[in-house]
């Protein structure tokens, strides 16, 4: 049995060099809440473990050029403590729902994206917020929209040698608000049965622009363009009436055990986050 190597790079450049060297034989450990369990049980047996939490430059949360950017190793706890992130109610609401406090201390939004579980709470909020993901590799970077990031169940666009450097959330003005909600089997530490998040721009009680994202309704988190298109230009009351019974075609449910339930509640949940976002707007951004 070949022994696994362990690296704890202190800079992004070091990390990228290691990832370039080991490519698909490397496993990135960030917060580790998903991958370490697999490593422990040897479900994953890489040549190299690259532990990136020791890279200070990736830990920052900052605002620049119209974006709030969350560094690749910033934890959920960092997000909750950040006044910059506090502007995005949907993001904060989603992070509060993740696991439990000890998970949020180590877990990271970037890691959540990398794992790409369809029920991942934070990913759904980021998708509705129109966040962009900056993927870095040795000698280059590319930016991917969250909605394009997830290609299949637990599979992303991330290629061997690449690392999630930061998540950029476009800053919005006072006419836009967001919200997140999920349904689970119990009140804490549970995976979403269905989750929904919206980013709403409204004026005079009318929906000007809306992004809706759903989790746990298919192999990946999804945006719901069918509904988004139908709602723009309508009054919020009309929107609420329309979404309540909606079963958008973007749902890809297979398991007959919960299909009916998810279809029944997805519209209710969209309605609730829509209402919450609108109430935040009506309440003057808070």
């Amino acid at each position: 049995m070949k022994e696994t190597l362990y690296f704890g790079p202190k800079t992004l450049a070091e990390a990228l060099a290691l990832l370039d060297k080991y490519r698909d034989k490397a496993v990135i450990v960030n917060g580790g809440t998903d991958i370490v369990e697999k490593l422990a049980h040897r479900a994953v047996d890489p040549e190299a473990i690259v532990y990136i939490q020791g890279i200070p430059e990736l830990k920052t949360i900052k605002e620049e050029a119209g974006f709030v950017s969350i560094g690749g190793t910033a934890t959920y706890k960092d997000v909750l403590a950040s006044p910059l992130c506090g502007k995005f109610a949907g993001l904060i609401q989603s992070v509060r729902e993740i696991g439990s406090a000890p998970i949020r201390v180590v877990g990271t939004p970037a890691g959540n994206i990398g794992t790409a579980v369809p029920a991942a709470d934070c990913n759904v909020a980021l998708m509705a917020l129109g966040a962009r993901i900056v993927l870095a590799k040795l000698g280059g970077e590319r930016v991917v929209e969250t909605k394009d990031m997830f290609v299949a169940y637990c599979k992303t666009q991330l290629e061997p040698g690449e690392l999630i450097k930061e998540i950029r959330i476009p800053v919005t003005d006072a006419g836009t608000a967001s919200a997140f909600a999920k349904l689970a089997k119990r009140k804490a530490q549970d995976i979403a049965q269905v989750s929904a998040s919206v980013r709403l721009t409204a004026e005079g009680g009318v929906c000007k622009d809306i992004a809706i994202a759903l989790g746990a309704v298919g192999p990946t988190a999804v945006r719901v363009p069918s509904l988004e298109k139908a709602l723009v230009g309508k009054s919020i009351d009309a929107c609420l009436a329309e979404v309540k019974k909606a079963v958008p075609p973007e749902l890809r449910l297979r398991n007959p055990r919960n299909k009916q339930y998810k279809e029944a509640v997805v519209g209710v949940l969209i309605g609730r986050v829509l209402k919450a976002a609108y109430e935040e707007l009506a309440g003057g951004g808070k």
Binding site: K185, R186, K187, A188, Q189, I191
Partner: peptide, 10 residues
């Protein structure tokens, strides 16, 4: 994580 027992919040 998929066999549910009550947490303190339940």
């Amino acid at each position: 994580h998929n066999y549910m027992i009550p947490t303190i919040k339940d």
